[in-house]
Simulated scan of single mutants.
Amino acid sequence: MEEVRTAGFWVRLGAGLLDGLIVGLPLVLVSYLFTGTTEETPITSIGNLLYLLIVPVIWSGYTIGKRIVGVRIVRMDGGKIGIGTMLLRTLAAGILYWATFGVLVIVSVLMVVLRDDKRAIHDFIAKTKVIYVK
């Protein structure tokens, strides 16, 4: 049986930056057309949230950025993620990160950098991991 390699910090960061450019930037432009501001609006917030919740579910754990860099989100048993998993991963972690004024974001980054399994807080909450795809 072949060992599954978990994705580390830099590849995950790269995927997130690509998602921001490919999805986030167009959302900001659409929001600007409707509101006249480039600051966060319901259009950008809801658009990003829906993207992060729905796309990985219908696209087998990938976002556009993750697909480009060759990683995807899976359950700990290797199975496909569902909407419940993504709700836990995205919303619960987001609430925790917000409630701690970003302190847990730093803890999560350190976990991905220092732990052998490369899992962040949101991975533990949802029982997921990010793996390299062959």
Rank of each mutant, 00 (worst) to 15 (best):
M1I: 07
E2V: 13
E3P: 07
A7F: 11
G8W: 08
G8E: 03
F9L: 15
F9S: 01
V11C: 04
G14E: 06
G14Q: 13
A15N: 02
G16W: 02
G16C: 09
G16N: 07
G16R: 04
L17G: 06
L17K: 01
L18M: 12
D19A: 12
D19P: 07
L21A: 13
I22V: 15
I22S: 01
I22D: 02
V23N: 06
V23M: 07
V23I: 15
G24R: 06
L25S: 08
P26F: 08
L27E: 01
V28W: 00
V28C: 00
L29T: 04
L29F: 15
V30W: 00
S31Y: 01
Y32S: 00
L33F: 11
T35F: 09
T35N: 10
G36L: 10
G36H: 08
G36Q: 08
T38N: 07
E39K: 11
P42E: 06
I43N: 05
I43D: 03
T44V: 15
S45Q: 14
G47A: 10
G47R: 07
N48R: 11
L50H: 04
L52V: 12
L53C: 11
L53H: 02
I54Q: 04
V55N: 08
P56Y: 09
P56V: 12
I58L: 13
I58H: 05
W59S: 09
W59F: 14
S60C: 02
G61C: 09
Y62Q: 11
Y62E: 08
T63D: 07
I64H: 08
G65L: 03
K66I: 07
G70L: 09
V71P: 00
I73H: 00
V74K: 03
R75L: 11
R75E: 14
R75H: 11
G78S: 10
G79R: 11
G79W: 12
K80N: 15
I81M: 01
I81P: 01
G82W: 04
G82Y: 05
I83T: 05
T85A: 10
T85F: 02
M86N: 09
M86Q: 13
L87F: 15
L88S: 06
R89A: 10
A92V: 15
A93E: 04
G94W: 06
I95H: 11
I95N: 09
Y97D: 08
Y97A: 12
A99E: 07
F101A: 13
V103M: 10
V105F: 14
I106S: 07
S108F: 05
V109C: 10
V109K: 06
V109Y: 06
V109D: 04
M111S: 04
M111D: 03
V112E: 03
V113Y: 05
R115S: 13
D116S: 14
A120M: 05
A120P: 03
I121N: 05
D123W: 08
D123R: 05
F124D: 12
F124G: 03
F124Y: 15
F124Q: 08
F124N: 09
I125S: 03
I125V: 14
I125M: 13
A126G: 12
K127S: 15
T128Y: 05
K129G: 01
K129E: 13
V130C: 02
V130P: 02
Y132Q: 05
V133C: 12
K134F: 13
